[in-house]
Design a protein around this nucleic acid. Structure first.
Length: 526
RNA sequence: GGCCUUAUCGUCUAGCGGCUAGGACGCCAGGUUCUCAUCCUGGUAACAGGGGUUCGAUUCCCCUUAAGGUCACCA
């Protein structure tokens, strides 16, 4: 694979069934960094927890990342999408040139893997992890542990009640080689391999966002590397994979910081150079806790379903923990601008609260910039779920009509799922409203009738082909004269039946001549 | 509880020894052809506290406080 630099980063999610908004940002920062540096951004699937297997999660993950525009150049792909344009340029070209093979995933039907450092799905790399766990056993940097979950649990509880730090007591570390062999021969069910931590050693390292950080091994426990089911834990898998996949920079969430010394020590035990690390601040709830399901939506899919534009989501999430610096006051960034400007200099250290109000504002900005055609395309699925839309007449369900409505709704919309909601009168045949609503200030019934009649005359005189917003505005304003409210208010109510709505010109334009006159007639009869 | 991390308006943030501490969201007020929205103008609001270092600290150091993360055969 041709790459202009040695920079290789990865996004390594575990398929849990949905894509967490924090994961989206982690993936984004990895992506931005790789693109900025001319490196590779790859995807690796961390599916080493058999208990948490969720059917369909992998496909969902892949397709969400794809729709968000975060395309990896190596890793698993949905094979159907491979034939379309979802693959970034370089692998697509090599694939076309026949230089690269796609490999069918054994475990996930319909998923293929592309790249020179595969497989990219951890459950397909088990032999590798076992081999390197064994290597650490041989070099006495790891040891077999035969303790049962029950014993570990009891031990932990006791330590907690004694206000001690929960930590493995190294019981199995003292086993003689005969005892170990006997246990191995007996194939004890709870056999794991644990890393043997050096005693009381301070581990230093430099984090790209946090600077110098140090830990002492005294406050750490011997972590399990290989589980009793033969699967690796995150720690082992991550070290082995990042090494063999030539990862240069590990960019991940801050929650990994406490296990960083373990990872550094693991690299050292293997005699490998460790990659650079960057630990990103957490995205948090209003109460400063880790962004969680209980306090609102955390899945990218949820936000997409609510009618947030992917560009708005990317823009918003990018600014959570990073800014372009240099006194920049820019708020809106395209993906290309983000790539151009992204750096770790300006990645924040403190967590950032996920502020929905700001997201709404950004989303509104992106909606305003959409053409009516684009807005129509994007909003159609949302229309189709609305009861008032489903109940509307066919001509009001038409593309032409919807686009007229969208033209005047565009500036009023925060989210696509609210489409039409404040303007349902466009789709309702018989408006229900109190006749008192037609009264502007202290006008008399006669004044209202005069106003509506005048409006009726003006609209009747206007030909269908002259039925434009500008003409309507011009003629009606002329007819209204000084006291605009006297005419405009009752007219607007007659057309909408609502206390609040767009202007009568806009509404009349969308409704058309026939429907507008019909509604004025009904108002007069009140 | 141990360890680690963090700390500028309510929120996202600018600031990298000298500024009336800037911008954005929100909120409030006013304006823009009737109401709503958009838009425009203005306003509200912050350096957690205490010690140092320095001629001078929001900025560097220490302590305190507070918040968060993490201590699994989950990632």
């Amino acid at each position: 694979m041709i790459s202009s630099s040695n920079i290789r980063v990865r996004f390594a999610p575990s398929p849990t069934g949905y894509v967490h908004i924090g994961s989206l940002r982690t993936a984004l920062y990895n992506y931005l960094f790789a693109k900025k540096q001319g490196g590779e951004y790859l995807l690796r699937l961390e599916d080493t927890d058999k208990k948490r297997f969720v059917s369909g999660a992998t496909e969902n993950l892949l397709s969400v990342l794809e729709t968000m525009g975060l395309l990896h150049s190596e890793g698993p792909f949905i094979s159907q999408q491979l034939t379309v344009n979802s693959l970034p340029e370089s692998p697509r070209e090599t694939l076309r040139a026949g230089q690269q093979q796609t490999i069918e995933s054994v475990k996930y039907p319909g998923i293929v893997e592309v790249g020179d450092y595969g497989p990219y799905i951890q459950s397909e790399r088990l032999e590798l992890y076992r081999k390197y766990a064994q290597e650490l056993i041989d070099s006495k940097k790891a040891y077999y542990c035969f303790c049962s979950p029950e014993r570990l649990d009891a031990m932990r509880k006791e330590q907690m009640t004694n206000k001690q730090m929960p930590k493995y007591d190294r019981l199995c570390c003292q086993l003689s080689s005969e005892e170990i062999q006997k246990n191995l021969d007996a194939k004890l069910p709870d056999t794991t391999i644990r890393f043997k931590l050096p005693d009381n050693e301070t581990v230093w390292f430099t984090d790209m966002v946090r600077g110098e950080v140090s830990f002492n091994t005294a406050s750490m426990a011997d972590a399990v590397l290989l589980k009793s089911d033969g699967y690796p834990t995150y720690h082992l898998a991550m070290a082995v994979d990042d090494h063999f996949m030539r990862i240069s920079h590990v960019i991940r969430s801050e929650e990994w910081l406490p296990s960083l010394p373990l990872h550094v020590l693991l690299y050292r035990a293997f005699g490998w150079d460790a990659p650079q690390f960057a630990h990103l601040p957490l995205i948090i709830n209003a109460d400063k806790s880790k962004l969680s399901k209980r306090q609102g939506d955390v899945a990218v899919e949820d936000y997409l379903k609510k009618g947030y534009l992917k560009e708005a989501l990317i823009n918003f999430v990018a600014m959570l923990g990073w800014n372009p610096g240099e006194g920049s006051m820019q708020e809106l960034f395209s993906m290309d601008e983000l790539i151009e400007k992204f750096d770790f200099e300006h990645v924040h250290k403190a967590g950032a609260v996920f502020d929905m109000k700001k997201l709404d504002w950004i989303n509104a900005q992106y909606i305003k910039r959409l053409s009516v055609d684009e807005l129509y395309e994007k909003s159609l699925p949302f229309w189709q779920e609305k009861d008032f839309y489903k109940a509307a007449k066919p001509e009001q369900q038409s593309e032409e009509y919807l686009k007229k409505v969208l033209f005047i709704e565009r500036d009023r919309l925060n989210r696509l799922d609210a489409v039409g909601e404040s303007n349902a009168f466009f789709f309702i045949d018989t408006l229900e409203y109190d006749k008192e609503l037609l009264r502007w200030k202290k006008n008399t019934d006669d004044e209202i009738i005069t106003a509506l009649t005048k409006a009726q005359e003006v609209l009747t005189a206007l030909d269908e082909q002259d039925w434009t917003q500008d003409n309507l505005s011009e003629k009606l304003m002329a007819a209204a004269g000084e006291k605009r409210g006297d005419l405009l208010w009752p007219l607007r109510v007659a057309l909408t039946g609502a206390k609040q709505s767009p202007s009568p010109f806009e509404v009349a334009f969308v409704l058309g001549k026939i429907e507008s006159l019909k509604r004025i007639g009904k108002a007069l009869s009140k």
